[in-house]
Design a protein around this nucleic acid. Structure first.
Lengths: 211, 211
DNA sequence: AATTAACTACGTGTTAACACGTAAGAGCTT
DNA sequence: AAGCTCTTACGTGTTAACACGTAGTTAATT
């Protein structure tokens, strides 16, 4: 299930691509190179772990625009900009948009490597954290629609009687659903469950109240 | 209770200070100027709303260091850097450290004003959001040390008996503390309280378990 | 047609939570 | 010394939560 993280290099200069590819091999990092932003967008499988070393000035879509497109597609691949023709406003804009770093050519290879490795390490940590959440998400998905409806109300601290009234069913039925929710999620009680839901940023949308 | 937000200008160049001060007056923004970072640190009252327009190159403590010091003191005043001698690594570093923008002299006044006003508006919105939380925070602060200790355990869903065992006291006493916590916070139950604590990002630090 | 899953409802019993009391010792302030 | 807060502990009672059953209807699936 765990995929080896990969360094994606997007630069229109073949010499740069080859040079960086060699460096990555040397330090033992998996690496893929692309001659332009479009090719990368086509080939990249969302979810693949790694980081993106991105040039700015390229024919066709430039690095700036690629970043924007990735954000639009909600692809949160960490980006390290690496460019010859950068300026301060550009660096400010890209960093504020979430880029990890903004390096200028000629770059100190050691600096780039350090930056990449720090980022890959950070990703590994995130993946580790999310591992435990996977099971929980699965268990959440095993809930029936009705249970999913009751869960947020319960977590908000609304007592069974009120939930029953709001849904127009018996409070005993609500009780049953709650029991099933606890059984399915494996939580000991709803406080614990609420904590887990918060931990995975499980957004709880409650329908607008009529009462 | 609501204080007028203020633009703090820190620059060693008197001409710049005077010029900016005049501009601020023109657009109707309250403004305070400082000739060096040390003076600002002395005078600034933590909590005062506003934003900081900060030069980098100054005798004594420079802008970079002032930012670091403010972060160290947990003062989250938004910073707009404004400098003649900036470079890309510096802009990257400061932005990553949380600065709002990094502008270079000579600056387009319209750009600076726009940036400041956007920031002040953002602050105003934050203050509006935090208003409702103020009461809750006050009520949280009215809790005794022991209650503060029990609160996070309870919110995690740990039953009274276990809490009692962990603290080496009777579970009835834990029950009493819980009741008092609910009474003081005004919450109907701990699920509701947990939600409120999350809403204000009330960090719950639990001591490392021994059992 | 039979099976399965989901939603509904109710009964019974146990445990946990919560409200309302009393009371006593420690520590601090006035 | 008196008053105050915090912490501790217990008793009593009510309510809510939870576990374990049975059982009917509906809808989709096989």
């Amino acid at each position: 299930m765990n995929v080896q993280p990969c360094v994606f290099i997007v630069d229109d200069d073949e010499a740069v691509r080859d040079g960086l590819e060699m460096v990555m091999e040397t330090v033992g990092l998996a690496c893929q190179t692309f001659g332009n932003a479009e090719r990368f967008l086509e080939d990249y499988q969302p979810g693949t772990p790694g980081c993106l070393v991105l040039d700015i000035n390229m024919p066709g879509m430039n690095g700036d625009e690629l970043q924007t497109e990735l954000i639009r597609q909600n692809i949160r691949l960490p980006i390290i900009f690496l460019t010859s023709y950068g300026d301060i406003p550009m660096s400010v804009r890209t960093i504020k948009a979430g880029a990890v770093d903004f390096l200028t050519k000629p770059v100190q290879i050691s600096q780039l490597i350090e930056c990449i490795q720090a980022e890959l390490q950070r990703i590994a940590q995130l993946q580790e954290q999310n591992k435990g959440d996977e099971d929980f998400r699965k268990r959440l998905n095993s809930l029936t629609p009705r249970e999913m409806e009751i869960l947020p109300l319960t977590i908000k601290g609304i007592p069974n009687k009120e939930i029953a009234q709001k849904l127009g069913i018996s409070f005993r039925t609500v009780e049953l659903h709650r029991t099933n929710i606890l059984r399915k999620t494996g939580a000991a009680n709803f406080l614990e469950l609420a904590g887990q839901c918060e931990a995975i940023r499980f957004s709880i949308e409650t329908k607008h109240e009529n009462t």
